[in-house]
Amino acid sequence: MKASSDAFVRRLLLAVACTTVLCLLVIAAFIFKEGLPFLLKVGPGNFLFSSDWRPDSGHYGILPMLVSSLYVTFGALLVGAPLGIAGAIFLSEFGPPALARVAKPAIELLAGIPSVVFGFIGVMVLAPIIRGAAGGPGLSILAASLVLGVMILPTIMSISIDALAAVPQSYREGALALGATKWQAVRMVVVKAAGSGLLAGTILGMGRAVGETMAVIMVAGNAVRMPRSVLDSGRTLTANIALEMGYATGMHRQALFATGIVLFVFIMILNGLASSALKRRAGKR
């Protein structure tokens, strides 16, 4: 009697557990259903590698957006990865534990702050500074990179701290016993051992940067043009979707969903890379 009711609960919970997978499949299905026919009709080559985006006259080339997205993402990584990893190394290896106890939640707080708030600060503070110091419109790829770099800090930092914490204490002791300074031990042994974890954190941070929308819309300028320098205005893939979704219909809307497919595939590749990096770390131990 009891055992059969337990079996019922098991089946019920299995069904519940499958909802995540189901959600993922439905999301993929609907995005692809809306965007794929368009993609096939226009041709992936034309879609991805033409830089002519004029939906009202039937030109759908997202190359400028693709390039802007890449610029912004790598710019964000240049800002966020060194800062995040350096901060993680300092907090876990050199700084006093009391500092780590305060600093870790403080930086994780950044992850909680709404992206629109970051965007707004970018507009009010960063853009005028860039305009004044380097010229250009201010609202630019550079501004977006800086804002996103700060936004991905908590992701990179907290995964890096976990990766460093997972390095066995004996590695450090072994290196120190051979006469290495603490910095040598950290640089040559600890960072190397935590390498794939640091990489995974960076890749996940990259995923966040690629996918971020609202902050980028506010600070990147959104011009549909091939950016020539980091001081130029640019429009990312995500911004393109969010800006035009409100009024797009027909082919135009399908084109936005097709942009979503590009984004979706890109993110899945990044996630796969990150999880294989994390697995490599788990396997090594």
Binding site: A17, C18, T20, V21, C23, L24, V26, I27, F30, I31, E34, L204, G207, V210, G211, E212, T213, T238, I241, A242, M245, L256, F257, G260, L263, F264, I267, M268, L270, N271, S275
Partner: peptide
Amino acid sequence: IRFGTDCLAGIPSIIFGLFGYI
């Protein structure tokens, strides 16, 4: 299930917006 959860966690919010809308 774990893979699905990880993927879902990585999907950018604009994709959720598109999906929710459609």
